[in-house]
């Protein structure tokens, strides 16, 4: 009899809530944290889409203009290839500013706002 009673008491204590508590707004906090952590991926995707669209537009306009004024386009291409180093540097700088604006600064601001 005593054994059965002990079993009952022990099993009851196994099923008793252990009393660990989370803050009442835990779910909301987690959702916001997750959204913030995932935000940079969205920003990066947007940056890549926009960059792709801009480059495509540039290619289409250049291609179209080639039929309108072939000499000008060839002259522009020659100018770019003759000044390849500064052109690459400027392109890199513009791309960095664009990337910083679309992704990097947003990521840093969200990190700072957390702290």
């Amino acid at each position: 009899m005593k054994n059965e009673e002990l079993d009952q008491i022990i099993e009851k204590s196994f099923r008793t809530e252990p009393g660990f508590q989370l803050s009442p707004d835990f779910a909301t906090k987690v959702a916001f944290t997750v959204a913030r952590k995932e935000q940079w991926k969205t920003d990066l995707r947007e940056y890549l889409y926009l960059t792709g669209i801009l480059l495509s537009l540039l290619a289409v306009v250049s291609g179209f203009y080639y039929f309108v004024d072939k000499a000008f386009v060839l002259q522009a291409a020659a100018f770019l290839s003759n000044n390849i180093v500064p052109v690459i540097l400027i392109a890199f700088l513009l791309n960095f500013i664009w990337f910083a604006d679309r992704v990097l600064l947003r990521l840093l601001f969200s990190r700072w706002s957390k702290t």
């Binding site: 809530e17 252990p18 660990f20 508590q21 989370l22 835990f26 779910a27 909301t28 987690v30 959702a31 997750v34």
Partner: peptide
């Protein structure tokens, strides 16, 4: 997702807490 966290937070807190 908030709702999923609410639904399963007890399970998670029991396991991690213990």
């Amino acid at each position: 997702f908030t709702f999923l966290v609410n639904r399963y937070q007890k399970l998670v807190v029991h396991i991690t807490g213990r």
